[in-house]
Design a protein around this nucleic acid. Structure first.
Length: 923
RNA sequence: GGGCGCGUAGCUCAGUUGGUUAGAGCACCUCGUUUACACCGAGGGGGUCCGCGGUUCGAAUCCGUGCGCGCCCACCA
């Protein structure tokens, strides 16, 4: 820490700064290496620079600049639900690298940060953290203070708190979480404009989501419908298609015998859901299935409940599966819903919203039984049980011949056959989804597939094949978007329903809130034209208690940032955005819905580019996820290797590519940072006259550098930051530190030697050559620092600040991150080399001598008294132009070049070499 | 069952439109090293480019096919 403290004082870093002020500068301002930090103290550097960047406002969006100079990022608002995942560091770095490049290209960057705090993850975390449950019937408790639940408290049932108290608790917890995230983002060096922060739950976002709903209502794109919906019995909430995932789950085929009404015949169905037998409303088989053909049009009778149900043919039934004939229930799966609709079957809803079997009466419609008494007796054993318990019970009952509808003995045929099959779950849920008829709000999307595909095509996907994921999802969409959720912490649906004289809700004439009143909460706000006293009264009104699907709000992130509908100038400047960074797992949700919203509201695309990051897999190539317990948390790694190393690791992976986590890459990043520090110290401590770059080696080096800049720039332009980094890194080691630096070193030092030895005479030419080396070393460093800046913001600004900043004007004087990206201007005054191959020839010649030293097992620094080096005539001709540098670097005092025609281009051979005596070590 | 991506050194990955002897870093082996850097330097070993077949003067690259891995979708009685 002691060394690094010195760097706090900029005067210490550039000791000759004041000396050169005010007069024409004739000498390069070198820095005193002893005043520079010995080591890279990541924590200190990162804290210091983050503060500098925030204070200087270099990341601020400038609304006065025109749209075409502005680059707008639709940053993903992370779900603030506790802890950060290493995958966050990965994908957010990708976006930041792109942003930093564009900023250096002179773009006016709009880079906000949002927090996706509305929704289930927050609710669930609040439930666990405080061990509470929201109960809308519990009265509000003013000033309720909750504390993290102890393990003792957790053993008792969760405490019930009111809806407003629950929401307050959510707000409290997200505040903490968002601060923790924010800290990590700062540490990682994300160049966001922190003035542009939002939460998906804040008043503006709520207003924006409700405005969106109002617009869709006016356009007749939203509607309510009472229909079977996927339902999570734990969250007691409707779920959208996009939130569903399949999980391979053990199950069993149960073969159950049904009777045919009025006949001696019977058949056996196979089901994995025997507990839905009381909800059976029909039986179906393939129309061509000879086994069951005779039964079509007749009625089957279920065992236990003796319910007569129609037997009908259906193309969808697969004769190969199970027994080829199956029972239709309300509802076992999506095909049941189809049959139910097409055949006009009864609705027998035995599964309750809480996942337990409701009480029903088989003597009343829609239930029916040939023996209601026995049916009710059997069902009495099941009512109140959860689905798992009910399944066990009914299997037991089906094993008893008393339940048979045929008199053939036990309805259950043989042992259940264990299978493993995919079952639909809510992605955040623990129990399988049920299909329950409920009233929900939907947004029409099924009729817009073509337009959605057209919009998707207007977007550039990076990498391009990610377009296919969007296309496939859109083409295969089978349900409209279910917008309503029976939850608490989210944006309320801004709707009330009139009550008729009997107190029944009139769903056909909902009262939608007007814009001026938004954001509203219909559970506490009064609809226009009513008095609050009429709430819940006949001929009065009642507020919708549901909230929006969290994607309904987060699909508006571009509009939330652009203040759509509130500030037209700003909206015009920021919408559509230029880039949406995100993971490929949420193409079907976040990307899809965002495209939908932009289309529905303004017939626009939300952004021009979609930048899709891959996943971090654990070393066994499995996806890291909390449920698997293989998640790596980023902060300890950042502390161990530095933020720059973390970013190096992230930026090494190409877009869209899933990458196995490998700590070695962090190590390599750390090594690169150290090397940069040392190279910077060395180059900037060189002194020389300010002269043009003239020496052949220098010109050849600059030519290579120029090619690197062209290539890296081209890569960045197409979001290929990983390629840009790789070639820059490779150049840095191979052409800069390992070769050019070594080759130009002795010449660069000549001027300093001249100053130190005034007695010796140095020609003007020698001074010019020395200055040329110093100038091109500095040019190389300056260019490389800028090329690395998007990936390694800390070390690059540190090195930049030692000297380049003070020499710069305008933005570049503040920080490398607002300096100009390297380009033509940097190389304009440097002439092309006489020979294109000069640099490679010099490197090859030095390499040959080094190899001779390695073979002789002497040090690379060992002086050479005499050397005979052979090469082809062409090579030797080029070598002449750079020979002094080669011989200087190899410490050769006497040499002879010898022609050898058999050698290829850039190939040299040491014919003989004689080393000086090993120097005595000084005490 | 359909789609997308992937399979290259022990590990993590590059390999542009087909073109010398297939690359990098890490790891490994040998040697060296204190005037930028041991968070170093030089040198070295290591590959049936998943298998098979085809196109071609020439294939890691293009085509076909098989196998394996990951993801998405469909099915899921």
């Amino acid at each position: 820490m002691s060394e690094s403290r010195k760097t706090d004082d900029p005067q210490m870093r550039t000791p000759e700064r004041t000396e050169a002020q005010g007069e024409a500068q004739t000498r390069v301002r070198s820095v005193d290496p002893t005043a520079l930090p010995k080591h890279f103290e990541a924590l200190e550097v990162e804290t210091r620079w983050d503060k500098v960047w925030q204070d200087s406002g270099i990341y601020h969006y400038d609304p006065s600049r025109p749209r075409e100079e502005t680059f707008v990022v639709d940053t993903p608002p992370p779900t603030a639900s506790g802890s950060l995942h290493i995958g966050h560091v990965f994908s957010y770095t990708h976006a930041d690298v792109v942003v930093r490049y564009r900023r250096m290209m002179g773009m006016n960057i709009f880079y906000p940060m949002g927090w996706d705090d509305n929704g289930l993850p927050t609710e669930r975390r609040v439930q666990n953290y405080y061990h509470v449950r929201c109960d809308p019937n519990t009265p509000y408790e003013e000033g309720l203070k909750l504390e993290q639940a102890s393990s003792k408290v957790r053993k008792k049932p969760a405490r019930l708190i009111s809806r407003p108290n629950f929401i307050e608790a959510c707000f409290d917890l997200i505040k903490e979480d968002e601060e923790a995230f924010s800290e990590t983002w700062h540490r990682l060096g994300l160049s966001v404009d922190w003035r542009q922060q939002y939460q998906t739950i804040d008043a503006n976002s709520r207003r924006m989501a409700q405005r969106s709903f109002l617009d869709l209502w006016k356009k007749k794109e939203v509607y309510t419908s009472d229909a079977p919906t996927m339902w999570d019995v734990d969250f007691q909430c409707a779920i959208a298609q996009a939130e569903v995932e399949d999980r391979e789950t053990p199950g069993a085929f149960h073969k159950i015998e049904f009777a045919v009404e009025g006949e001696a015949a019977s058949f056996v169905i196979a089901t994995t859901r025997p507990e839905l037998l009381p909800a059976c409303v029909g039986v179906t088989a393939h129309p061509e299935d000879e086994r069951y053909k005779p039964f079509f049009g007749k009625r089957a009778v279920t065992p236990l409940f003796r319910a007569p149900v129609p037997i009908f043919p259906s193309e969808v039934a697969d004769p190969e599966k199970g027994t080829g004939i199956l029972m239709v229930c309300t509802f076992g799966d999506q095909t049941d819903v189809q049959w139910w609709r097409n055949e006009g079957l009864e609705l027998r809803q035995v599964v309750g919203f809480n996942g337990r079997l409701r009480s029903v009466d088989f003597s009343e419609a829609p239930y029916e039984s040939l023996d209601a008494e026995k049916a009710n007796e059997a069902y009495g054993e099941l009512a109140g049980k959860n689905l798992k318990q009910a399944r066990a019970k009914i299997v037991e009952m089906l094993g008893d011949p008393a339940g048979s509808a045929t008199g053939n003995g036990a309805p259950l045929q043989g042992e259940p056959e264990a299978i493993s099959h995919a079952v639909k779950f809510f992605e955040k849920g623990d129990r399988p989804l049920e299909l329950l008829p409920t009233r929900q709000w939907f947004c029409r999307l099924l009729d817009k597939k073509e337009q959605m595909l057209a919009k998707g095509e207007q977007i550039e996907w990076h990498p391009p094949h990610m377009w296919a994921r969007y296309r496939d999802w859109t083409e295969n969409l089978s349900l409209d978007w279910c917008l309503s959720r029976q939850r608490f912490f989210g944006v309320p649906i801004p709707v009330w329903y009139p009550l008729d004289a009997e107190g029944e809700r009139d769903f056909d004439h909902p009262i939608v809130a007007d814009l001026a009143s938004m954001p509203v909460d219909p559970t506490t706000d009064t609809p226009p034209g009513y008095e609050e006293e009429q709430r819940g009264q006949p001929s009065g009104f009642v507020g919708d208690t549901d909230i929006f699907d969290t994607w309904f709000t987060s699909s508006l992130t571009p509009q939330i940032s652009s203040h759509w509908g509130e500030d037209d100038d700003r909206h015009a400047s920021l919408f559509p955005a230029d880039m949406r960074p995100q993971g490929h797992d949420i193409i079907r949700t976040w990307a899809f819905y965002t495209i939908a919203k932009a289309m529905l509201h303004e017939d626009e695309v939300p952004w021009k580019n979609a930048m899709i990051s891959g996943w971090i897999l654990d070393p066994d190539r499995k996806k890291m996820s909390k449920s698997k317990g293989n998640v790596t948390t980023p902060l300890p790694l950042i502390e161990k290797y530095s933020a720059d190393a973390a970013r190096y690791w992230a930026a090494s992976a190409r877009l869209g590519t899933d990458t196995a986590f490998d700590e070695n890459v962090w190590k390599v990043g750390k090594r690169l940072v150290t090397k940069m520090l040392n190279a910077g110290k060395f180059v900037l401590s060189q002194t020389g006259e300010v002269v043009p770059i003239t020496a052949e080696l220098d010109r050849a080096f600059v030519a290579k550098l120029k090619a690197l800049v062209a290539s890296a720039t081209a890569n960045h332009e197409v979001f290929q930051y990983a390629n840009a980094l790789q070639e820059t890194e490779s150049f840095f080691w191979t052409h800069f530190t390992d070769t050019y630096l070594e080759l130009a070193k002795s010449r660069a030092r000549a001027y300093a030697d001249a100053e130190a030895n005034p007695d010796q005479s140095f020609s003007a030419e020698e001074v010019a050559l020395s200055g040329s080396a110093v100038a091109s070393l500095r040019l190389g460093l300056s260019v490389l620092v800028r090329l690395f800046a998007p990936v390694l913001p800390y070390i690059t600004d540190e090195v930049w600040s030692w000297s380049f900043a003070a020499e710069s004007e305008g933005n570049a004087a503040k920080s490398v991150h607002v300096a100009a990206w390297p380009g033509e201007a940097d190389f304009a005054s440097v002439p092309e080399p006489a020979h294109e191959a000069s640099f490679d020839i010099a490197v090859a010649a030095l390499g040959a001598i080094n190899k001779a030293k390695a073979d002789a097992e002497v040090s690379m620094g060992r002086e050479v008294n005499s050397l005979v080096l052979a090469g082809a005539a062409d090579s030797l001709a080029v070598l002449e132009g750079v020979a002094e540098d080669v011989l200087g670097a190899a410490r050769v005092s006497a040499h002879r070049f010898e022609e050898k025609a058999s050698l290829g281009a850039s190939e040299f051979e040491v014919v003989s070499i004689e080393f000086a005596d090993k120097p005595e070590r000084s005490a």
